[in-house]
């Protein structure tokens, strides 16, 4: 009863392509190849992020509340108490780069968590069937997180400047600041994408995400210098990329002594490791 022979396909309509006006859709696009694929995919992901931000800016404002409170309450108070040795600058100034890094980190970690939503909504599935290698997809996401965090960072910088923090306006240094924010965000978004690839479910990821953000923040030099930390905390801070991000931001924005070359090396390496780990685990989210 079964026929293994394919039947004649139904006759194609005599109207031809013109009927639907599909002329353009008859020719496949010329495929990019080699090194050109990666920047194209990163650009595509970043464009999507900017489009979303243009449609809905609420998140930009709501996410500015927390850093503003940190600067306003914590910063102003501790500037008065002078309890934390900052190397001669007002505590508010000392704190500002830490808060920029913190808000960028929160956004990046949450952005990475969103990949589980995208998976559950079927959006990720379709991205995985485009000619985009997994590493390019993850890199695109990582840089899109960076773009989002960077725009948030601009908001925090403006708040800090309004509170009287004396920041640099040297364009070269500001480009450096942008690079640092993007690299840090790339790492933290990949961190949460990696965890997403391990825990696989929304609830577990939310739990883990919440559990790691505050410790990452407190176990860094964002609020206080490494010098006053207990030894164990200093050890954690040394392996925490956030510390290097804050150090670089302080050096660039305030001109305080810092270790810029080391900071950049660590941030680039961390981002590369994060992208590799997340790409390796991304396939688990497709199953």
């Amino acid at each position: 009863m079964m026929s293994a022979e394919p039947a004649e396909p139904r006759p194609v309509s005599v109207d031809g392509p013109g009927a639907l006006g599909l002329d353009l859709l008859l020719v496949p696009p010329r495929a990019r190849s080699g090194w050109r694929v990666l920047p194209a995919r990163v650009a595509a992901m970043c464009v999507v992020e900017l489009q979303k931000l243009r449609h809905d800016r609420t998140e930009l404002y709501t996410r500015a509340v927390q850093p503003a409170l940190w600067l306003l309450i914590f910063g102003e108070t501790f500037t008065r108490i002078r309890a934390i040795p900052t190397g001669g600058i007002p505590y508010l100034d000392y704190l500002a780069p830490g808060i920029i890094a913190q808000s960028a980190m929160f956004i990046a970690i949450f952005y990475g968590i969103m990949i589980i939503w995208e998976r559950d909504a079927g959006v990720l599935t379709k991205l995985l069937v485009t000619p985009t290698p997994r590493a390019a997809l993850v890199t695109g996401k990582a840089f899109a997180a960076g773009v989002k965090a960077l725009i948030q960072a601009v908001v925090v910088v403006v708040i800090a400047a309004a509170l009287g923090v004396s920041l640099t306006w040297n364009p070269l240094r500001l480009i450096g600041v942008a690079a640092v924010v993007i690299l840090g965000s790339a790492f933290f978004s990949c961190l949460s994408m990696t965890i997403a690839g391990i825990v696989l479910t929304r609830d577990r990821l939310m739990g883990v995400g919440q559990a790691i953000t505050m410790p990452l923040f407190f176990a860094s030099n964002a609020l206080y210098p490494v010098a006053i930390m207990p030894d164990w905390l200093r050890a954690v801070s040394t392996i925490n990329p956030l510390s290097y991000q804050v150090d670089a931001l302080r050096g660039l924005l305030l001109g305080t002594p810092s270790h810029l070359p080391l900071d950049f090396v660590v941030l680039i390496a961390a981002a590369a490791i994060g992208i590799t780990a997340a790409s390796c685990l991304l396939g688990r989210l497709a199953r």
Binding site: R30, R32, V47, Q51, V123, L127
Partner: peptide
């Protein structure tokens, strides 16, 4: 199988993303 479009983009932007991803 699952209905999946990016709800926070317009229809046109949803299609344009795939145009970019397919070069």
């Amino acid at each position: 199988q699952q209905l999946s479009a990016d709800a926070s983009l317009t229809g046109r932007e949803n299609v344009a993303l795939f145009a970019r991803l397919f070069d």
